[in-house]
């Protein structure tokens, strides 16, 4: 499993303190965020995790990832303490091929953020990957107008730290609907969801 690398339990960051109830609270926060895109939701029960990615990103994975969901880590997060944390607490296999990932953790600067991930198929659009995109801040970036299911009219969202062409890539992803990846932006203990159904004005 760990390819000769032994997990050091003494240095391993703790997971959920109360697995059933913490996971339930975290999931409801994630569900709230996903069903109301653009809304910034804070995760009260998120443990600190291994440092980077943020507590919100690791809490998302602790809530939803397990042995059935391969996780892909961008270079910025592909470190032994992150791998150990996810393997030990979630039991999730870490994969190096983007196409195999159910969940992927990206940095805001990760190049070609959508390239190579599973987009689902017209018959099974649910099989697409979910990208967790770690950003410096969910506020204070250039404001974009989001609209689509879950949004009453329009939502003004100002995620910071994304590359120039990120939103062009998103527009291309959105046109694939019902296929396409879903995104969760994370920073510190907060997250904000962008499902494929949502259009973002560039």
């Amino acid at each position: 499993m760990s390819n000769g690398h032994m997990t050091d339990l003494r240095t391993l960051a703790p997971g959920l303190a109360d697995p059933a109830h913490d996971a339930q609270q975290l999931f409801r926060a994630v569900l709230d965020a996903t069903s109301r895109p653009g809304r910034i939701v804070s995760l009260p029960a998120a443990p600190a995790g291994p440092g980077t990615p943020s507590a919100a990103a690791t809490a998302y994975l602790l809530t939803l990832a397990d042995r059935d969901t391969p996780v892909w880590l961008a270079d910025a997060f592909d470190r032994p303490e992150v791998r150990d944390f996810l393997r030990f607490h979630a039991g999730a296999p870490i994969v190096t091929k983007r196409a195999e990932a159910v969940f992927a953790v990206l940095a805001s600067a990760t190049p070609q953020p959508f390239e190579g991930f599973n987009l689902g198929s017209d018959a099974y659009p649910d099989r697409s990957a979910t990208l967790i995109v770690e950003v410096p801040d969910l506020r204070g970036g250039p404001t974009r107008q989001w609209h689509g299911p879950g949004i009453d009219g329009r939502a003004a969202v100002a995620v910071a730290g994304l590359a120039e062409d990120f939103w062009q890539d998103w527009a291309a992803n959105h046109t694939l609907f019902p296929c396409g990846v879903d995104i969760v932006f994370t920073a510190r203990t907060e997250l904000c969801a962008l499902p494929r159904s949502v259009a973002v004005e560039v």
Binding site: L31, S128, T130, D182, P195
Partner: peptide, 9 residues
């Protein structure tokens, strides 16, 4: 996970 995909589509 199924619920989140259902909300997304």
């Amino acid at each position: 996970r199924a619920i989140l995909k259902a909300v997304a589509v």
